[in-house]
Structure formats: structure tokens, C-alpha cells
Nucleic acid binder design. Structure first.
Lengths: 240, 240
DNA sequence: TTAACGTTTTGATCCAGATCAATTCATAGG
DNA sequence: CCTATGAATTGATCTGGATCAAAACGTTAA
């Protein structure tokens, strides 16, 4: 899917943008938010197939997705890629590197996208003036990580249908939170990418979709998903 | 395994102890470490089968394991327990609640143990005087979470033997880091608990152990594990 | 010591999901 | 528009791990 394997495809074409949406929940005051606005220097456009960051490279920035869709994945020894996450409009990307300062995965745009770039060095620098800033940011980051963690943690013991239901419910919630329809959305990723993320083969993912459709719980038209019966979808998930 | 299901088994019998071991890597100065020593008010003894914290309860403290072994797990709707982690001497417990302030899992001692308790409220209060403290702590916590995350993330696509090899290598590294033998150790948890953690049945775990032993990679004497051939064990893990 | 109970191992069978294969469908490029 | 290529669906078969069952082993309490 990525068009190039070298660094030339890492986009650096940027323009200034606002970061208020992400900062307001932090409980910062007006002056502090203005400082942050200043800090977020870049609005980057990323074409489908281009990388936002690459595994092994130094952690420079956090990214807030303004528009579009990303996947992250790690490359295994044998060259296959293991998808580790999906990121939609309004979500935060780059957290894989907080602890090590080095990215552990590649991040690729699955459609033409736009992100806000937050240079981490400047964030740390500024947090000397706003003591609570770093605290809040780390808290946000922890929450994001734990949330995914919680979901993935439990996949181990789930059957294919449960995994897919969990995945759809998770996506649905995230679309809802961002102001989109929670019952009607387009999957930006392939069956293979879903499978990789869920630890299933693409054929199994496809069959699970078909079965959920046969049971009138969802309808599937290629990438377009409509959830008819959220309750029964939730019942598919055995866990707490 | 837990002897009681009510709160009466939450141990609160404590005495003061040092917290330096955990704080020195933070790069704090002598005065600050002394403040932390003061902050760590409690050294708790926890009997095998007792709870360190319970799911749903308010997040009060972080715990550093001084001696012993713990597991964490969540209860599913059907009552079965899904093991989410193991914690040995020197490791940090209670991180599941950083973001929500409420514990998402139970923590139970698998043998008689001793922990340092770090009241979180006092940690936050103190971090007003030492601005970098909270920053460092969140960083440590993020690292811990991401580390586990990374391991579990990849289990989905692994076969039983790969999962067990990953698990053993992980344990081995952690024993090594704490100054114990990395090739010779005792498993404090049952086959069922390992299975729950890895998304396998206890019989499958047992068979995987037997197969690794047949191949002269490890030897298993009930709970006692000896890793003869670390290289071949590592080769069992297909992933990066 | 023995008895009782929980844990581990091993065997036999079954089934969900992987694998292999063929067809249909969707999208981009000429 | 048509063609080429990748994505999705569906079918047939195979297999790793779940499940059921029984025996061996360990630990605790009487």
C-alpha cells in the first residue's frame, strides 16, 4: 500500500493551524491555550499511502488527525505487517514513542488526510512555564494507550465473530464521539488489515461480516457498514 | 484462589519503607528523594490470596512490589476471570487506574508478598513542589503500559508455542533485570492463569511446555522452569 | 501416615479458523 | 469505454487448539 519505502515519502509540507479542540478539555486558561496555538506550528497534508512517521526514527512530534484515516503497523521478520491500530479524525497519533523517544511502528494514511503537528520538544519546553501541561498531556496519552490496551487485551480469548463485533462497536463509538453517524460508516481499511489487527485471516473476517449480515445485525456493502441492531451486536461480545 | 470476595481481605497493615530504588532513576536530587522517602508512608504485607486492590474501587495508591508475586485480572460477565498481567519484585502495580482514577481489575498476591504503597494524592500534591516529578512518573507509567501493550498486541496472530515462548522470554528478561537467574526460575502462577493471560486453554499450555521440553529447549519440573537453549527459544517467536 | 482436593499431564475427539482455490466485484489507467 | 489489477466473497479441505476424559502428581489438613 505505501507507495515508497524510503524517507522521501514523509510529508513535510505544512501550514499553521489551531490546536484548541484538543487543549480545551485540559482545563487550561485562555492565555495558556494561546501559547499552545502558537506551539502547534504545522498543518500537514498527507496523501493516501504516505507515511506520517516510520519505525526506528526519532520521535519528533505528536499528530492530531484533522481529517482522514491512518493505520499503524510493525513489520515482522518475515516482512509481513502486523497492524497495531487505526486512527480517525480527531484522534492522537505518535503515542507509541512516548517512552522510548523512538517510533516503534510505521504510520500510513489510508486516505488523503490532514494532521496538526505538535513538536514534542517545544511541548516539553513550554511545560516548564505551565507545570500542569505535561501532566495533563501524559494523562491523555496514558488514557489513549490504556483504552486500546483494554480492547486488545481481551481479544486473545475471543472467537472471530466476537472480535469483529468488538471492533465494529469500538469504531462505532469513535465515530459517534467525533460527531459522525455511529450506525453508518465507511471502513477505510481492507479486510486483510482488519484481520491483521484482530489476529484473523481476511477470509475469516469476510465470513464473519457475512454471518452478521445473514443474522440481520448489520448490512455490508463492500466498505460501507450499516449497523441495524446495535443491541444484538453488543450481545455478540461475550466479555465484560 | 482469592480467599474472600469482600473488602475485609484488603490488607492495610503497614510500616514505613524506602522508595529510593524506584526514584533514583528519575534523576531527582538528594533533597527530592528525601521528600519521596517521606511520601512513601507504607510497607504492606500481603498474604497469598489477598487483594492489593479491587476493580471498581477508587484509585488511591501505586504499589511497588518489594517481595512476592501478583496477578491482575478482570471478571467477565459469565464469572470467568481473564488474567491481564503478572507482577514480580521491583515492578509497579496499580497503573491500570491512572487515566480513570478507578481500578479496572483486581490484583491478587500469588504468594506471600510485601509492597511499598505510594499514596497518589500525596504524589500529585508533592509534584507541585517538584515540577518534573509528575512528568517523570507519567513517563515511567507510560513505558510500563506500552511495554506490556507491545507484547500482548502481537499475541493475536501467534500459535500456542510462539505465545508461550514469548511469555517465557518476557519473564526471563524481567527476572534478569531484577538480579535473579534469567534461565532458572519458578512460575508462581498456574497453567490455567498462564493460559488465560495468553488466550489458551490450560491443556494447550501444558502441551506446549511438554513440546519445548521434548525439543530440549527447556526443562519443566512442575512450576520450576529451566531454559537450556535461549537462542532456540527466541527462534520460536516468529515476530520482530 | 492417609485422605481429599487441586494441579498437571496425556490421550481421544471435534470444530473453528487457516489454507488453498475459484469467482465476482471495484477501481484506476489507458 | 474497456482492460488490468487488487479486494472481497464463497466453497472445499486441512489442522491446531478446544473440549472431554482419565490418570498421575503435589499439597494441605486431619
Amino acid at each position: 500500500m505505501p507507495k515508497n519505502n524510503d524517507m522521501s515519502s514523509v510529508n513535510t509540507n505544512c501550514a499553521s493551524c489551531s490546536f484548541r479542540e484538543l487543549c480545551l478539555p485540559l482545563g487550561l486558561n485562555e492565555r495558556e491555550v494561546e501559547m499552545l496555538d502558537d506551539l502547534v506550528s504545522h498543518k500537514c497534508k498527507i496523501q493516501r499511502g504516505e507515511f506520517l512517521h516510520r519505525a526506528g526514527l526519532n520521535f519528533q512530534s505528536l499528530y492530531a488527525v484533522r481529517r482522514g484515516f491512518f493505520k499503524t503497523y510493525i513489520l515482522e521478520k518475515d516482512g509481513r505487517q502486523q497492524v497495531t491500530g487505526f486512527f480517525m479524525t480527531g484522534e492522537l497519533l505518535g503515542l507509541d514513542a512516548i517512552s522510548t523517544e523512538i517510533h516503534t511502528c510505521d504510520a500510513v494514511a489510508l486516505e488523503d488526510s490532514e494532521v496538526c503537528e505538535v513538536p514534542f520538544a517545544r511541548l516539553e519546553e513550554m511545560s516548564r512555564n505551565i507545570p500542569t501541561l505535561m501532566h495533563h498531556f501524559h494523562k491523555i496519552m496514558s488514557r489513549e494507550i490504556v483504552k486500546d490496551h483494554g480492547v486488545m487485551m481481551l481479544l486473545g480469548s475471543m472467537k472471530a465473530e466476537e472480535r469483529l463485533a468488538t471492533f465494529l462497536i469500538n469504531l462505532s463509538r469513535r465515530f459517534f464521539k467525533r460527531g459522525y453517524s455511529s450506525s453508518d460508516f465507511v471502513l477505510r481499511m481492507t479486510r486483510e488489515e482488519i484481520g491483521s489487527y484482530l489476529g484473523l485471516k481476511l477470509e475469516t473476517v469476510s465470513r464473519a461480516f457475512s454471518r452478521l449480515q445473514d443474522e440481520d445485525i448489520i448490512s455490508v456493502d463492500n466498505k460501507h457498514i450499516n449497523i441495524h441492531d446495535m443491541d444484538r451486536l453488543r450481545n455478540k461480545v461475550g466479555n465484560s
